[in-house]
Write a protein that binds this DNA or RNA. Structure first.
Lengths: 229, 229
DNA sequence: TCGATCCTGTGGTCAGACCACACAGTATCA
DNA sequence: TGATACTGTGTGGTCTGACCACAGGATCGA
């Protein structure tokens, strides 16, 4: 057992026992090192790992915001991990697209007819923003991604929406890289806008099957057209 | 930008550019520190993060196995991250079960009639092992979890099977915690065995819809019976 | 030829020091 | 009296230099 793993185990035990709760602050690095009888570098390595897992957030200075604060952010570590593994080319893009289709079609089917009105309205506002013909292309894709995350969140499953958010960020760069593969961006964008509207309409109207089918066609169609899949 | 993040960025760039590939070794900590003009502790913190993400594996000593070797293991970091966040009680168990149902029913539907025979045989061997009436209960549940991971892997989607494998540990934890809630373990185990067999038979027989329905009923039934939902 | 031995390079750990930063209390001045 | 400037203090961030345990390869001896 390496020393920093001992620190990790201790922190995890405190979390599980309720001694450390969301918003609490870890003891200072020097204090923690003293309590556990290890050196400060070992404590720091453990904190780096916790940070990479989205369990703590660190900040310098003093005051209540400084130090290592317990947070609950499972999203960013998943995103970073996926990005790194995409960089090693050991996560096929096709699998990611397939997983997106699976998660999003399930989410809209679940959400159909029972999604919160304010969530639906928020998704609609994203589509309104994407109607701007002057919108830069990158901004369009960012809003697009945000809309899909919003769709996945409609079902109210934290794990599913977290996974979806992680996939979105990991993929965005590759979507932009494939931009030149779409021959006629103007008509492609118009098609995407129409598909988004029809998906949202199906969810609002309570037709889960139609929403699931439409969102699957929309995602697969885009990846085919941009030659990513 | 903190110093260790600079190291991380550099390693990620090398991965994306193909300068670092699976099985390669990172330069030694001292060498890397010298190349990037940073100190050894900063390099070590970066390596800890990469290790936590399943991108490298470190070992002491000399020889080809020593040092920081590039690996592709997205599973263990996801597992660890989920475990930590479950410890903070910010991932509802119900969401995890729902996600299981989603992933596994999709996987068996996809796999029905076209799964690799050796994968099906491996899953069958897990069920054979679970037939032993002398099997300790914990061991039964471990094999159970293993079987479900094998089911999810049948579809051949790396991302889905990785997510499912990460959920395994979390699943095992809640199953064991709920163990006392099952009044009659003997008959319950018999029921689980029968359900497993019928799922696998449906997959082998190519009936995807039945397999999906059976696996969903199996998971949700156990969850209900053990009073976790 | 084969065995034991030493050398070398690796990560693992530590102690101590200094810096930049942010807040809080105090001192200062208009 | 009020606002402003200053200093103190505790935080994480970084670095240097050192020593240890370990594993493999090179060397040397029988």
């Amino acid at each position: 057992m390496r020393t920093h793993e001992l620190v990790l185990r201790q922190v995890e035990a405190d979390l599980a026992a309720g001694k450390l709760r969301l918003g609490d602050r870890l003891p200072g690095e020097r204090a923690l090192a003293g309590q556990l009888g290890v050196s400060r570098p070992s404590v720091r390595e453990a904190i780096r790992v916790l940070e990479a897992m989205g369990v703590v957030r660190t900040a310098v200075g003093s005051g209540p915001e400084a130090g290592a604060v317990i947070v609950a952010d499972p999203g960013s570590p998943l995103t970073a991990t996926l990005r790194l593994h995409l960089a090693t080319s050991h996560l096929p893009m096709g699998d990611i697209v397939q997983t997106r289709v699976l998660l999003e079609s399930w989410a809209v089917r679940e959400a159909a007819g029972r999604a919160e009105p304010d969530q639906l309205a928020a998704a609609g506002r994203l589509l309104d923003a994407m109607d701007d013909p002057e919108l830069p292309r990158e901004r369009f894709h960012l809003l697009d991604a945000e809309f899909h995350v919003a769709l996945a969140a409609l079902a109210g499953n934290v794990l599913v929406s977290t996974i979806m958010a992680s996939l979105r960020e990991a993929i965005h760069g590759y979507v932009m890289a494939a931009a030149p593969n779409l021959p006629d961006w103007g008509s492609a964008a118009a098609g995407l806008r129409a598909q988004h509207r029809s998906v949202l309409a199906a969810v609002t109207g309570g037709d889960g099957d139609a929403a699931a089918r439409l969102v699957a066609e929309h995602i697969e169609g885009f990846y085919r057209a941009s030659r990513l899949a």
